[in-house]
């Protein structure tokens, strides 16, 4: 790099100032977009600590408040079953993710390591299923769950959300990278396949497994469409549906500070998760996340 820099030293002073100008403009533009991203969060928090009367008294919205209050947070938990929505989402997220891992790990293992008749054909079929959009299958799933009497139950919420062909594929690719010699050696030692999977393959592929768990947790926490279809009893609402319910019926439509308090509470867990596992989340999303 420094040798190249020497060659660049021919560049005149004028162009150096131009570069400084470009850099300044770059930082200004980047900061502008950062503010654009952060502003809704700021407004959410700001509105949530304004008192009800202060908020509604501002015909021109104020950009800060001198008398913050936590009253709205108490209101959010007492006037609507926010804690209930929260627990439902937590349960839904944990059980769905756990079940999914229990389903996809053996499947990925079978595709990557075991040899049996029809494996390649089934794998090709699985890959073809990756192209099927959720919108196409959700109609029948809705009918199935309704006919089975599973509306407004945890089973109805969780079961259709368990499978993901894409994660089987992602994990299978990772499993397949583990050298065959390891498997042969384990076989010689008399290790069973199941033991080999849990004691050798899973520890080696831990980063991928963690990535998949994080992506699924994000997906579950934010899921809205399916829960909306199969629940109309607020006792089974997840946070997204809770937000929608609060917006349409809760607090009386004008109590925006309390709404914002609820929004803050609902957004916090994932933001905290993200800030803790920042690198993992971003690497995972760039490998396997699709938004939309």
């Amino acid at each position: 790099m420094s040798a190249r820099q020497n060659e660049l030293s021919r560049i005149s002073r004028a162009s150096r100032t131009r570069r400084a100008a470009v850099r300044t403009v770059t930082y200004i533009l980047l900061t502008l977009w950062a503010l654009m991203v952060l502003f809704p969060y700021y407004w959410m928090i700001l509105s949530s600590v304004k008192s009800y009367s202060a908020y509604n008294g501002e015909y021109v919205p104020a950009f800060f408040t001198l008398s913050p209050t936590l009253e709205n947070y108490r209101e959010a938990f007492s006037a609507v079953p926010l804690a209930r929505y929260f627990l439902n989402s937590l349960l839904f997220t944990i059980v769905t993710t756990g079940l999914m891992m229990a389903v996809i790990i053996p499947a990925a293992f079978a595709f990557a390591r075991l040899e049996f008749r029809g494996r390649n054909l089934v794998f090709a079929l699985f890959l073809a299923l990756m192209m099927i959009p959720n919108e196409l299958v959700i109609i029948t799933n809705f009918q199935t769950i309704t006919n089975a009497g599973l509306r407004n139950t945890y089973a109805g919420l969780i079961l259709p959300s368990v499978t993901s062909v894409f994660y089987i594929y992602l994990l299978r690719e990772n499993f397949a990278q583990i050298p065959d010699e390891l498997y042969s050696a384990a076989k010689v030692d008399g290790t069973t396949d199941f033991k080999y999977l849990t004691r050798v393959m899973m520890p080696i592929c831990r980063p991928t497994i963690i990535t998949i768990v994080i992506l699924k947790v994000i997906e579950c926490w934010n899921s809205y469409v399916w829960p909306r279809l199969v629940t109309d009893d607020p006792a089974y609402f997840l946070v997204s549906n809770g937000i929608q319910e609060i917006r349409e019926n809760g607090f009386g439509r004008e109590n925006i500070p309390a709404m914002m308090a609820a929004v803050v509470v609902i957004s916090l867990p994932l933001i905290a998760l993200f800030l803790c596992f920042r690198k993992k989340v971003m690497a995972g999303v760039s490998r396997g996340g699709i938004k939309g």
Binding site: P40, Y41, W221, N222, V239, V263, S267, L270, I271, F274
Partner: peptide, 8 residues
Amino acid sequence: YVTNTLAV
């Protein structure tokens, strides 16, 4: 990306 779209 990690914020609930309904919430924001």
